[in-house]
Design a protein around this nucleic acid. Structure first.
Lengths: 150, 150
DNA sequence: TATTGTTATACTCTATAACTATA
DNA sequence: TATAGTTATAGAGTATAACAATA
């Protein structure tokens, strides 16, 4: 998936939910809007959404390929390829795992850290036009309600 | 992207946002959870998320390939392939456009209608464990707040 | 034997460019 | 000329299966 951000696209994404269940409908719509922003931010750095997630996960962690696959919910062979491409781009690095010579430890490079830091800012900027429609009290309430879901 | 539904996956998706901006963080987390459900529902029917969106769009509409591309935010060549595969699966059909002999009109078959109807129900079921964490008043408030975003 | 990671293979998604048929 | 759709091509994402190295 590369992009899906037009108003129409969001509207019809919402059409995927049940119109008689307005919360589901609203949540699906909001999710497509959010994912659209994430996709655009990733694309702005010539990354896929998955690659951006990899950088986000590694932002404050060093992991094995297997752990990374667990975080992403993807097969280790898929992640192996993602890591290889990220390494080729200089965003991350593989180092031998001193505790287990079968495995490797994956971590961000300085470039990777810079890219994800910029990405986080751009996500905030991209969502601002939407989120600014709420006043500060509404913002607090929405945050609290969303956090109650987890 | 096929799946990403484990708790860990959702948590780290949230890590993509700015921790100092709790609304963004919560929204990103909720979005990954929602997209995970949508992906699983699609996968349960051996469809990609994009294909499920195509069915959702065509649920109450007949469109040209170009219009469908506009709704999805994808190139017409991409949609041409999506439509061809959907047609091969018997989910949708292409008919000559009587008003413009260059184009075609895409619509759902009875099977396609059945699949998207099931999918909508499954999305509701898949999100229920999460959304049921809210009582009816909270549900109303969250719905109203999310709808204010659009 | 079991596990970690990589590779080979195959398919879908996606965009760009070139093409055709029609307008 | 311009537009609608398809096809050819190419690259990324994905999973499954098979493999090598290590535990």
């Amino acid at each position: 998936m590369s992009d899906d951000e037009s108003p129409k696209a969001s509207d019809d994404a919402g059409a995927m939910a049940a119109p008689d269940q307005p919360l589901i409908d609203a949540l699906v719509q909001a999710s497509f809007l959010t994912m659209g922003v994430l996709n655009r931010v990733a694309a702005a750095h010539d990354l896929s959404l998955t690659q951006l997630r990899v950088l986000a996960i590694l932002r404050d962690r060093t992991t094995t390929v297997g752990e990374l696959a667990g975080y992403l919910g993807l097969d280790k062979s898929t992640v192996s390829g993602l890591v290889a491409r990220g390494e080729a781009r200089g965003l991350l690095q593989r180092k031998p795992n001193p505790h287990d010579h079968r495995g490797v430890l994956v971590s961000l490079t300085a470039i990777g850290h810079r890219v994800i830091a910029e990405g986080v800012k751009q996500v905030a900027t991209g969502l601002a036009p939407t989120l600014n429609r709420l006043d500060s009290q509404e913002t607090s309430r929405l945050t609290a309600l969303l956090m109650r879901l987890f």
